[in-house]
Nucleic acid binder design. Structure first.
Length: 763
DNA sequence: GAGTTTGAAACT
DNA sequence: CAGTTTCAAACTC
């Protein structure tokens, strides 16, 4: 029988709604997760959250987990928790293991997972008045975690049904090669942990606040012949969530849960599945002066014909953490179509959304227009040459969707205010041809869709190439309170401060591990982390409120983050003012937010300043000059006086040589420091006593806590003895010191003996 | 770190 | 469009 018993349904949280079926081919790689927020919070604007979100690589649940296993016919009281570090399994009383039915009737905000092959489950679900949701699980493992209103996370564990049904996952499972594993997390604190890869560094952890997330991680191996359909939806959002966040680690498809009764953590992690390292982006040139490390890394998008401009390297956050309510959909391989549907308690029709990759460079530079649920068949457009993601804002009233198994896939989240959907499409996604308009996930692989609340703002002409992040574009026709917002890749990073709802269907992205790992790859002498995610130089604005182009942060379409500015408005808390400022700047100069360094005319240098400089005193050989700062020569369009920033300029050559020499010195010093540090560390390591081998331990290492306590007791005893015998103070001190000497002698003696014993054993 | 210089941005 | 002012970064001491 595939139908979940009523008891199970009763255990499921109300927040969990049925969702559209997701059909996918199982893969061995882990997938993303989806989170949702409670309807009660719909009225709130999550983006205003001050609490930073921390990337989390581990999914955690503080409350008991309900585990469903297809092979088991009955629920058991045992719960298995796995330690992320050790990989060991621990049974706790807080968990319940339920079995087999993949069909969980989700009436009443409950989740329904049906095994496709099981017709009984479907019928049962129909009989229950709830459309059955089908999940094919052959060849893969599916974990579903959910947290209900009660705060109890529910984990649905759908292990491989093939040959070893009913076998609970163990530590060995994590080590099993090519695990076809799917993790679905619904509600509460959910972290998507890629099944493949090491624990910890793969996924960004977000400190989600006031947010419950539902994560749907889906892995669709191309080799897998059995597509999977599952419907999961409705996130549970509550501002009442306890600030405490427990993170149950998940290793290699394992979901760790904690039995602590803590209310579902507010933290939600959203990691962008694709590697967006600049290195991986062919067709991009990164102009970095070999002489010195530029504070600004210039990236020239070659692939995008429309944008020749170079930009500061935008650390396209591989890990995307968006503000308050973010819906993320990660699509897996194009070969495996997936249907993802999210629904909320207030069932509404899901609007089909189609994402279309127009082209572009991918990575950090692309623009994406994401239609939201209010408008069916809207296409997502990626404009090359931009690091901005265009986000469509959707008012709360329009956003809900009902889980319709057969309907088009759509992700929507009810938010109190405005919804923003920010799709982040990996480079590889652009290469994927659209296969189905009805299935968004299918068309765009490895896609993350972020939904962020935003404030309705004055409409701005959708100049996709010029709009800075946060810009609200004209509302889509029929979209009602729908608009577009431009969100830069880094926007995501800054939005980590807000809770979000994530719905991600996994994709072929090389696991989150690939992201972070790749981020550390060296690039032109700089690690990818430095080039892509290195924190931008903080601004020091005092009077502009960081809402004018004086502010580099603002000018680059970034939020101020860790800056030294005063009265800063360049943040989410002042989104309205910020957007107005953006509009003002655009009114003044439609290209205000375009990169200043672009490609020159034919026959000229590849890169040149779009406007040219106007230097008068610096000779264009100081960083006052924007050309010099960008490491480019002044061009014919420059209006500089006394320019020395040209190819044959001896002053320039001299400067460059000096700078080069200085750079070499810096590098040498750095290397020397590194080497010295390494040597010191090595020395310390060698001198540090080794606990495991008593032979190498120094005597002081034997002064353990126990020894110390014993010594103190001895001294106290000696003091008492002196007191009882009414010894004079001097004598008492002598006795105590004498006892202390005895203790020391015993310790040293023990140490020497231990060393001798070890020597006799080992040597 | 404080003060000065500089040139882009903003303003008139 | 030109001139002036404002601003923050770059630079100097």
């Amino acid at each position: 029988m595939d139908v979940v018993s009523p008891e199970l349904n009763s255990l499921l949280p109300d927040e969990i709604m049925d969702t559209e079926a997701i059909e996918d081919v199982p893969q061995s790689q882990p997938e993303s997760t989806t989170s949702q927020s409670e309807p009660s919070d719909d009225t709130s604007i999550p983006m205003e959250t001050d609490t930073p979100m921390l990337p989390i690589s581990i999914s955690s649940t503080s409350s008991p987990i309900l585990t469903l296993k297809p092979t088991l016919a009955t629920s058991t009281a045992t719960t298995k928790t796995t330690d992320s570090v050790t990989g060991t399994s621990v049974t706790t009383s807080g968990l319940q293991k339920l079995t087999a039915p993949f069909t969980i009737s989700a009436a009443n905000h409950q989740i329904i997972l049906n095994k496709v092959a099981s017709s009984q489950a479907t019928e049962a679900a129909k009989s229950a008045g709830t459309p059955p949701q089908v999940i094919k699980q052959e060849g893969q493992k599916l974990l579903v975690t959910a947290i209900g209103k009660s705060g109890q996370p529910i984990v649905l564990q759908l292990p491989h049904t093939g040959n070893k049904p009913g076998i609970s996952q163990t530590a060995a499972d994590t080590k099993s090669p090519a695990p076809q594993f799917k993790v679905v997390t619904i509600g509460g604190r959910s972290d998507l942990k890629p099944v493949v890869g090491s624990v910890g560094n793969q996924v960004t952890t977000l400190q989600a606040q006031q947010l419950k997330t539902v994560q749907i991680a889906k892995k669709t191996p191309a080799s897998s012949a059995a597509p999977i359909k599952f419907i999961i939806t409705k996130t549970v959002n509550s501002k009442t969530l306890s600030p405490q966040t427990s993170v149950p680690p998940v290793i290699a498809g394992r979901v760790l849960t904690q039995s602590s009764p803590v209310i579902p953590p507010r933290t939600i992690n959203l990691s962008e599945p694709h590697n967006t390292s600049i290195q991986s982006l062919p067709g991009k040139k990164i102009a970095i002066s070999p002489l010195k490390t530029p504070s600004k890394v210039t990236v020239v998008s070659v692939a995008s014909p429309t944008s020749n401009a170079s930009q500061k390297s935008v650390a396209l956050p591989v890990n995307v953490a968006l503000g308050q309510q973010i819906l993320t959909v990660q699509q897996s391989t194009s070969a495996s179509p997936v249907k993802v549907a999210t629904s909320q308690s207030a069932a509404q029709n899901i609007k089909p959304v189609q994402s279309v990759a127009v082209g572009g460079v991918g990575g950090s530079q692309f623009k994406t227009i994401i239609p939201l649920a209010t408008q069916p068949n809207v296409q997502q457009i990626q404009v090359p040459g931009s690091r901005f993601h265009y986000v469509r804002l959707v008012t709360a009233t329009t956003a809900s969707s009902t889980g319709q198994p057969s309907g088009p896939s759509t992700s929507s989240i009810q938010t109190g205010a405005v919804r923003m959907s920010v799709p982040i499409v990996p480079p590889q996604t652009m290469k994927q041809p659209l296969t189905s308009a009805a299935q968004v996930v299918t068309t765009t692989q490895t896609q993350q869709r972020l939904i962020m609340p935003a404030t309705p703002l004055p409409q701005i002409q959708p100049n996709f190439t010029n709009l800075p992040p946060g810009t609200v574009l004209a509302p889509a026709p029929g979209g009602g309170n729908v608009g577009y917002a431009v969100v830069p890749a880094q926007y995501v990073t800054q939005l980590q401060q807000s809770p979000f709802v994530t719905l991600a269907s996994s994709s072929s992205f090389p696991a989150s591990a690939g992201i972070q790992t790749q981020a550390r790859l060296p690039l032109n002498g700089l690690s990818a982390a430095e080039t892509t995610s290195r924190p931008r130089k903080p601004c020091n604005c005092t009077k502009s409120q960081c809402l004018k182009l004086y502010c580099d942060c603002f000018a680059n379409g970034e939020f101020c983050n860790n800056c030294n500015c005063n009265n800063c408005f360049n943040n989410l808390e002042h989104e309205t003012e910020r957007l107005k400022a953006i509009k003002t700047c655009l009114d003044r100069n439609p290209e205000a937010f375009k990169p200043k360094i672009g490609k020159g005319k034919e026959g000229e240098a590849d890169r040149r300043h779009s406007k040219g400089c106007n230097c008068k005193r610096s000779g264009c050989l100081k960083n006052y000059c924007e050309c010099y700062e960008a490491k480019i020569m002044c061009s014919s369009i420059c209006k500089c006086i006394g320019c020395k920033n040209f190819e044959e300029s001896p002053e320039r050559k001299t400067l460059m040589h000096l700078a080069d020499a200085a750079e070499v010195r810096v590098q040498q010093q750095t290397a020397a420091k590194t080497k010295l540090s390494s040597q010191i560390s090595d020395l310390l390591m060698r001198t540090t006593p080794v606990v495991s081998s008593g032979g190498g331990r120094l005597p002081y290492t034997f002064v353990t806590k126990e020894v110390l306590e014993a010594t103190c007791e001895c001294l106290l005893e000696q003091a008492k003895k002196a007191e009882q015998t009414h010894q004079p103070r001097a004598e008492a001190e002598r006795m105590i010191l004498e006892e202390f000497g005895h203790c020391l002698m015993r310790i040293i003696s023990s140490a020497g003996k231990a060393k001798a014993d070890c020597a006799s054993i080992n040597c």
